[in-house]
Every structure is written in C-alpha cells, then in structure tokens.
Design a protein around this nucleic acid. Structure first.
Length: 728
DNA sequence: CGAAAGGCTCTTTTT
DNA sequence: GAGCCTTTCG
C-alpha cells in the first residue's frame, strides 16, 4: 500500500516534510488526523525510523487511542514502540522514572481538580484566611495559571501585587508545601516539574533528546507555555518538530492555552515550513460558508480560505422555541423525524451546548420519549463520590503520605471521627512534623505510654482502628492482585455495607462495580505494579476518552468536548446572549472571540445538517428570563439560514411556534389520545403496559405507565409514541 | 462529640 | 435546583 496514494497535494507536502520544524495549519475537516498518522507511518515505513524514536503528543487519551488504531492499519506491530499520549501522561511517565533527580518519589499521587481544591481549602484555613472571602476556585486558577508559565510561589509576586495576589502568593506557597508533604503532584506540576527536571539536569535532557528523533504535537493551538517549553527542550537536538493546529479552534485559553505558541513557533524556528490545509472534506458547502462567516467576525485572526468540493447541502436551520423544554422536545422530535424518513441513525446525531447544566432538560426529554442517548460527562464518572472514595483508599495504600485521600475516607463510612477530632489530628500531626498517616501510627505505638494526647480515649481507639485497617491493606497490596485488593478494600472497609444502607446505594454500587471493571483490565500485572498503573490511568483519563468511536445513540456533549469529533447532524442549543457567548465572557473582547471560536467549532462538527436553537425564555433557577438570540446568529447571512427571518423587524409578541423546513412539524400537537387510569397502551419502544396515573401541567399531560417488560416510566403524552390497546 | 436537618450561594468550559 | 455550611438534636 502506498502511504501517499490518497492524499491531496497539501497533505502530501505535510507528510513528506520530515526534516526540520514544520507548522501545519489545518482547517476543520481538512484531514488533520490523517496527515499525522500518515506522517508517522511514512517515517516508519518509508524512511525507516525506529518507532521508539518517535513521539506523538495528543490532546486526549481518546485521540491517542484513535491514532494507535489507525496506525495499526498502516504499520501494524511497531505501534507499541511509539511514545504516544497526552502531555500529562508522557510527563507522568518521565517523572516516575527520572523524577528522583529533583526529589520526586516515584510513587507520587496525582491530584485532580477536586483534590486541589480541598488541599487549597486546608491551606487557607492554615493561614487563617477565610475560604469564603477568597474563593478557592479563583485562587486555584491563579496558581494553575502561574504554574503554566513556570512561575513558582517565590517568583509569583514579581508579576503584580494587588491584595488578592498577595493572598494567592501565600496560599500558593502553603499549598505547594502541602503537596510536597503529601508526595503529590497536581496536573500542572506534571508539566512544570518535567521542564524543571530537564532544566536542572542537562545530561538527562540530552538522553531524551537523543532518543526522540521526531516529535509531533496535535492541537497545538491549545498548548500552554510550559508545554511549549517542554517540546522545545525535547526537540533541542534534532529539531524535527512538527506541530499541527488551527488558531480558529483555540478554545482553552482559560486553561492557559496560549496562541502565542503558534506565533512563537515561527520566531523560534525561522526555518519552519508552513503547510496550510484548506480543503475541507467534512461539511457541505453551505455549512462551511456559514461557519466561515461566523469566524470572520473575529478581528484578532489570520484570514484563511477554506473550500470544499462537497455538495451545497442544506442551509442551517435557526429555530426559536418558547422554553428550554420545548427546545429539548424539538431536538428529540426532529431526530425522530429524520429517522422516520430513514435519513439518519441515532448515532449520527449530536446535541451540543455551552454548559453542562443544559444537558439536564435534554436528558429528561430523551427519557420521556424513550429515545436512547449517550451523555458525555454529566457528573463525570471519576468525580463521583463513591468512585473517588474507593480510589482514595487505593491511593492511600500506595502512598500513605497522601493526606487528601486520608482525610477523605477516614470517616467514610462513618467511624465516629468527626470534624473536631480531625482538626486535632491534623494539628497534632503538624506539631510532630509528620504526615497524618504517620501520626496515626505514632498514636498506635504510644497507646500504652502516658503521653499527653488531645484525644478522648474513644477517639484514640477508632483512630488506631483505622490505622490498623489501612496497614492491613498495605500488607495485602504486596501479594494481592489489584482486583483482589479492590474487593478486600470495598469489603473490609465496610464500604459496600455502607452503600447498601443509602437510598441511592444501588446506583452508587453500580459505579463501584464499573470501577472494578476498570481495575480488571490490569489483571495481568503483578500486585504493586497493577495498583500503580491503575491509579495513573484513572488520574489522567477524561470523559471524552470513554466515548466509543461508534455510538449507536444520540450524543449529548459540551461544545468543548466536541472538538475533534464529527457528526452528520448537529444541534447546537442555547444560542442566546449570556449562554453563547457566556455572560462571564462578555466583558473582554478576547474572551468574546473565544466564544465565537467555540461556536465555530460546534458548527464545523457537522457534515450534513446544522440546527441552531434558541429559546424565547429560559429558566435560570428561580424565575424565567426573557432572552436575546446570540449575536453569533447575526454573523450568518440570510442565504445560509433556513427557518424564519430572524432579523426581520419582528416584534416579540409576533412569536409563533416555529416550523422548520425539515420537519413535518416542530412540536407535535397534543396527543388526541384520551386515556384513563387502567387503560392498556402500546409504546413503540417499551411495548405494552398499563396506565397508572395521569397528571396535567401547564401545557402537557404527564402519564405514568407500568410496562410489562420495561418497568414504570413517566412519559409526556404529547411526545410519547403511544397507542391505546383494547382491553381484553 | 457526632450525625441529621434547614438556609445560604452560585452555576463555564477540563487535562 | 444542588452543594455547602451552619444550626439543632441525639
């Protein structure tokens, strides 16, 4: 097979430019992933580069896996030798192996956002600062932003000294110290410490430089300064560095992604070859044109000429509904219509939104209609309480200095250790100059001696009991396989029993079992190794990683998560001022431009059809508020829009329910079915059942049906595909 | 001294 | 409408 065979000239150029620095600017749908994979395949197959000497950095684990799969088709076998993964995963690996040189224990724990916040709160309390007055989230983001620029606690104040920044500086210092004492690194540390490691150990860096002959970075527009610094270090010797990105799809500046990286690239590597990929293979012409008009309204960008040979296709549908419930109903209904005409399968459709909170109403509509869906990250799996609890037990076993985990589970399930005792424990540990866990051990050792302890004898007893239990786990961890250890922990800690007693215990137990399933994937590894690998794995996954390549159901996803994906049919809901653009972004021009890029990313995910929805009123917890359609809708000229003439001078009270060009009807008329309790009904999906209650709300009837095979369901009469069945 | 029950604030996006 | 924190009860 010829690797270059089915590439267009620009793609070919990008693949063949293997020597020296290369910057590939790739528009949406221009075959970016193709280029990257073919490049790697080309290096291995045509140029004969040893795969061990190639590094490819991706933005998510999912992207890495996808690349792996595609490469397997091109160069089966050698894929496992590549260094392939996210910045964070690659850095974690480097630090586990070589971090000792800057004092990092190879068993370090990785703290996620939640852990960071709880540690930060503790450091604020330590400093006698009120966490209410100084929002931990704000401080955390300031610290993260500092770390993304390689600014340590001591250099922090050089960059300004408002009172808030002084608070941040103190918190940062304390927080970093506590991380250190816990043998833990946060996400930003993974990157920053790696760069630091290389700065302080040039000979070590050289080893890595010598190894990596070729380095590629995907989604370059979303890298931050530390990441840039890192690749600069690694590519320092051979300079075969290829970065791929699209400034118009930069949507992570709030995570310190810095567009300057793209600009700096050409400055740092003046000999860089720049390749533009401008032909789009994804969207129809009308969609691409509409998207281009949206993004062109950004002032701070380089214009580019995207084009496509695809058919013209259909204009974007702009739809106004009255409420968000109607908005959700419209989506469900339209999917059903399209399916009814055999045009799409559910898996072809995605619904995208700005904030996770918007998914709730959608979910309700999908459930009521009985249409299956896949929600990417509602409450994210690894952030669920029970999942984090179990992980905390396992982390503590691997790294007993991990105080965040210890404090998380010391009283879960309840062991009679309250806040009071915990405060005393932390203080006592501090006074002894040891981590909390060590303090517990000391407590156990000194139980008979008449030391003056700040605990009641009852408390001492439970604390020691806890320490003994964990000690037992640690011993077991040396001989038990991960899953066996997992089971032992869940059982002996009383966690399973504890869940059984909760109202929603069953759901939570399901999640524990799902986590156990993940643990099972490490079954072939020896005891301790399996534990480390598992913990590393769960620390660095994201939700998008779990989205299977081919889903059979409608996908519900945030605009951010949708980056890099494509769907034949895309619905973007909540196209309103305050939501998209988000109100928190409306004050700064730069942030507003980022919101516009987000909108652009959304539209360009679509191959065939785009629906842009906005509501007339939207519920913001208490009351409902009148909304204004998003300014981004105005950027799309009329000829690209189907539906009503949004910008004709219609008055608000001219509002009538909208009918899209594509639908038979936007919202089905209320069902003419007359049902009573006790009637038998037939549902398209759930089969037969009996009506057990009926209730009316403002404009619809809700019906509860006990299905013979599918349990009790609440449905909306106007939506549910129901028919009455004659009683026998 | 710890666990359960009501009032408060906010809601952006995530490796 | 939820989490979080403070108050009240056991």
């Amino acid at each position: 097979m010829d690797i270059l065979a089915d590439l267009n000239p620009a793609q070919k150029e990008a693949v063949e430019a293997i020597e020296g620095p290369v910057l590939i600017l790739a528009g949406p749908g221009s075959g970016k992933t193709r280029v990257i994979t073919h490049r790697v395949a080309y290096l291995i197959r045509k140029v004969g580069v040893n795969p061990r000497r190639i590094m490819a950095v991706t933005f998510t684990n999912k992207a890495a896996r996808e690349m792996e799969a595609r490469l397997n088709n091109l160069v089966s076998g050698s894929v496992k030798d590549l260094t392939l993964g996210t910045f964070h995963a690659i850095c974690a690996r480097i630090l586990r192996i070589d971090g000792k040189a800057i004092g990092i224990d190879s068993r370090f724990t990785i703290y996620d956002g939640d852990d960071q916040i709880s540690l930060l709160k503790r450091s604020l309390v330590d400093l006698d600062l009120d966490p209410k007055q100084y929002a931990p989230r704000a401080i955390q983001s300031a610290i993260s932003s500092a770390k993304s620029q390689m600014i340590g606690p001591d250099e922090f104040l050089k960059h300004g000294r408002s009172y808030f920044e002084e608070v941040v500086q103190r918190a940062y210092e304390r927080y970093q110290k506590m991380l250190d004492e816990s043998s833990a690194l946060d996400f930003d540390d993974l990157l920053m410490k790696t760069v630091l490691l290389f700065r302080r150990n040039p000979e070590l860096l050289e080893r890595y430089q010598n190894r990596y002959l070729h380095i590629q970075v995907d989604e370059f527009q979303d890298t931050n300064l530390v990441q840039y610094e890192l690749i600069k270090q690694l590519a320092g010797k051979y300079r075969n560095i290829c970065v791929v990105g699209d400034p118009d799809q930069s949507i992570y500046s709030w995570r310190s992604a810095d567009l300057r990286n793209i600009l700096n690239f050409e400055k740092d590597y003046p000999d860089a070859k720049v390749v533009l990929l401008e032909q789009s293979y994804r969207s129809t012409r009308l969609i691409l044109d509409a998207a281009s008009h949206v993004i062109s309204a950004n002032r701070n960008r380089k214009p580019k000429d995207l084009w496509t040979e695809n058919e013209e296709g259909m204009p974007c549908a702009v739809i106004e509904t009255y409420t968000e419930q109607e908005e959700a109903q419209y989506v469900v209904n339209e999917v059903d219509n399209l399916m009814g005409r055999g045009e799409v399968k559910p898996g072809d459709c995605a619904v995208m939104y700005r904030t996770n909170a918007q998914s709730r109403v959608l979910e309700e509509a999908f459930i009521r209609y009985g249409m299956p869906y896949k929600l990417v990250a509602g409450t994210r799996f690894y952030e669920r309480r029970e999942v984090k609890d179990i992980i905390a037990y396992l982390r503590l076993i691997q790294n007993s200095c991990d105080s965040v985990s210890l404090l998380r589970i010391i009283n879960v399930p309840q062991r009679g250790i309250g806040q009071r005792s915990l405060d005393e424990l932390t203080q006592w540990a501090r006074s002894q100059g040891v981590p909390e866990y060590r303090a517990l051990q000391l407590l156990a050792e000194s139980r008979d001696s008449a030391v003056d302890l700040p605990f009641s004898s009852r408390t001492v007893k439970v604390l020691i009991g806890f320490a003994v239990m964990v000690e037992g786990f640690i011993e077991k961890s040396r001989e038990l396989k991960l899953v066996e250890l997992f089971d032992a922990v869940v059982e002996s800690s009383g966690y399973r029993h504890y869940l059984a007693g909760l109202v929603d215990g069953e759901d939570r137990w399901e999640n524990v079992l799902e986590l156990r399933g993940v643990a099972q994937e490490y079954r072939d590894m020896p005891p301790m190794e399996g534990l480390s690998a598992f913990l590393e794995g769960v620390a660095l996954v994201s939700d998008i990683d779990d989205l299977e390549e081919r889903v059979e159901t409608v996908t519900l996803i945030t605009l951010h998560q949708a980056k890099g994906l494509e769907f034949p049919v895309v619905f973007i809901i909540g196209m309103e001022e305050g939501l998209l653009p988000h109100r928190r972004s409306m004050e700064s021009g730069d942030e507003l431009e980022e919101e516009r890029r987000l909108c652009y990313v959304g539209i360009t995910r679509a191959k065939q059809r785009v629906y842009l929805l906005h509501t007339y009123r939207r519920n913001l917890f208490g009351g409902s508020e009148a909304t204004l359609p998003s300014r981004f809708l105005q950027d799309i000229p009329k000829q690209f829009i189907a539906g009503k003439g949004l910008w004709d001078d219609e008055k608000e009270d001219d509002y009538t329910p909208v009918t899209s060009l594509f639908s038979r009807s936007a919202v089905k008329p209320l069902s003419s079915l007359k049902l009573e309790v006790g009637d038998r009904v037939q549902h398209q999906i759930f089969g037969e059942g009996v009506v057990i209650s009926l209730s009316s709300n403002r404009d619809d009837q809700e019906i509860t049906v006990a299905f013979d095979g599918a349990g009790v369901r609440h449905l909306l009469l106007s939506l549910a595909p129901l028919e009455k069945v004659d009683k026998k």
